[in-house]
Computed example of a mutant assay.
Amino acid sequence: MASSTRNGDDHDDEIRLWREDDWWIARDVTTGVTTQGRSRAAALENLDEAVALQEGEVGREPTDDELRSAEIDPDQNVTGDTEPPDVLD
């Protein structure tokens, strides 16, 4: 088990790291976010970025122009009241 203090918080965050075939898998137990990488360092870097996205510390919503350039109609880009699939929980 590895623990660290993120952003000056006083709590420990548990991270699990293991290897499957040619990939390293990193999981932040507190958030449930899981990533992978070809090396331990890459898996942990990816985890840091994914947790920051999950926590709203980085990233932003795409603009309507960005959605259109990806051939997505902004008016149709809604989830409504539908629950996400179990795999996204």
Rank of each mutant, 00 (worst) to 15 (best):
A50N: 01
E61M: 13
T79E: 12
W23L: 15
E57K: 14
L53M: 13
Q76G: 13
R38F: 10
A70C: 11
S39H: 06
I25F: 07
R60I: 07
V29I: 08
N7I: 05
R38A: 14
Q36V: 04
V78C: 07
D81Y: 11
D13P: 00
V87I: 14
I25T: 09
R68W: 01
D28M: 05
L53T: 08
I25C: 03
E45V: 09
E61D: 10
D89H: 14
A50T: 00
E49Q: 09
S39I: 01
G56Y: 12
G32W: 02
N46K: 06
W18A: 06
D65M: 03
R38G: 14
T31G: 02
E83T: 08
T30A: 09
N77L: 02
I72D: 00
V87A: 12
S39L: 05
A50L: 01
D89N: 13
R68S: 03
D81K: 13
P62S: 00
N46H: 14
T82L: 14
D75E: 15
H11R: 14
A43L: 02
D48W: 03
E66I: 02
D64A: 15
W24S: 08
T5C: 07
L88E: 13
R19S: 01
T79L: 12
V87Y: 12
P85L: 11
E45L: 07
T82F: 03
G56D: 09
P85M: 05
T34L: 12
R27A: 12
D73M: 08
D89K: 15
R40N: 07
L44M: 14
H11E: 06
